[in-house]
Write a protein that binds this DNA or RNA. Structure first.
Lengths: 220, 220
DNA sequence: AAAACCCTTTGACCATTGGTCATTTTTTAT
DNA sequence: ATAAAAAATGACCAATGGTCAAAGGGTTTT
């Protein structure tokens, strides 16, 4: 028998950089295929074939198909976080910062449709996930972080007079966050349909209309 | 060789009622298991076992696992439609009818969590579906129907003076529909998280807060 | 009573999937 | 050149969704 040291993704101890490069390489190809065909319709065999590797090799770098996918999800979350943090800085008062946060999320959706689709897929299945996995924990923390930002911005907006005083901060921050993610998600799902129903209707304006809707509801 | 008449779900020509009863029976059991374990984690073998049938029998009544699942989705859509149409009647002016429509959707989510989960799962994968399947076409039509109702209600609200005049009817109807579905969906995904973050926070109030938010944004 | 008919049900079987691991190939150190 | 260590392989496994020739069973015809 073997010495039984392999548990999860053991060994790989000394040339970390090389390993990270290979992981990146695999993720690059997986990203393409997952986005084209969706998670369920992509097989590890296909990813391996595309990479001209044996399937077993994939499992040296990622412990499962889910692990490979979640690594992409986590990359996406980091991109989203950067966009949001950066775009918030560009506005002065609380209201405008919040609106920029909404716009940032929309920008992420428009400019990184692949990462966006992974993040959404992941969010949709959060409930069923194993909360001991590091990637899952990390993403929970990121969500929490973003939620806290929103809460602070509402507070700031009330303080600087850009947002009306009668909003319930906790409820409003939750609602805005739910709402923004929900609107974008549903928009993505339905945009093709809407274009069929109402010929020539510029569906893309809906998301801008949503930002405007937010402003009207929040401003003093 | 056989006479090759079986294509999709052929035969079953003469005792339609008996067949429908058997379909119902299968759907009853499938509903339970799909809801408990989710679509991906439910196998046709397990459904058959629970029904004390052979797996092949399932395929006489449903052409595929998807077909069985979509039949449940369609039942759910019919329930939702009934709730909405009924609750709209209970209000007088356009604004209140719209708010009732939102409440009806929330009611569907709360009272039929199993059907709700099927409908949402289906909606999330609409984009990838075969649009020649009757069940898919039917559900598209139902969505369109609901969307049209909303459009008419906004018009009515502006007319009877309960809704402000400066809304863009097409955009607003789309936005409200996207938004309501999105908010409920995101709420469902995140309610557990929120309760962890903010101990004792009554997450369930968020959906009522949303209805209130709608009223404030729409009223004259 | 038995044969003929025809729909219904069965479950062994198939290709494919995510995942494993003994073996082989390649790299590194001496 | 040799040996030790690390990386890569692909045959293999159990389970999946789906198929279909064969068997079952109830009614009518002989």
């Amino acid at each position: 028998m073997t010495n039984g040291q392999r548990v999860f993704m053991a060994r790989h101890n000394y040339d970390e950089e090389k390993i990270q490069k290979k992981k990146k390489l695999i993720m690059e190809t997986a990203k393409k295929i997952f986005y084209e065909k969706g998670y369920e319709n992509t097989s590890m065999n296909e990813i391996a074939r595309e990479l001209k590797m044996a399937k077993g090799t994939l499992y040296l770098y990622f412990s499962s198909k889910k692990d490979l996918f979640f690594s992409l999800v986590y990359e996406g979350l980091k991109i989203l976080e950067n966009i949001i943090k950066n775009d918030i800085k560009l506005a002065k008062n609380g209201l405008d910062k919040i609106l920029n946060m909404g716009r940032a999320y929309i920008k992420f959706y428009r400019e990184y449709p692949d990462y966006y689709s992974f993040v959404i897929k992941y969010e949709s299945e959060k409930a069923d996930l194993d909360t001991t996995e590091p990637l899952v924990i990390n993403s929970y923390e990121k969500s929490e972080e973003i939620y806290d930002i929103l809460k602070l911005l509402i507070l700031k907006g009330i303080d600087d007079g850009s947002i009306r005083e009668d909003v319930d901060i906790t409820k409003m921050s939750m609602l805005l966050w739910l709402q923004t993610i929900g609107v974008v998600q549903q928009f993505e799902l339905r945009k093709k349909l809407y274009e069929n129903w109402d010929e020539k209707f510029p569906a893309s304006e809906i998301l801008d209309y949503y930002i405007d809707f937010m402003r009207k509801s929040l401003k003093k």
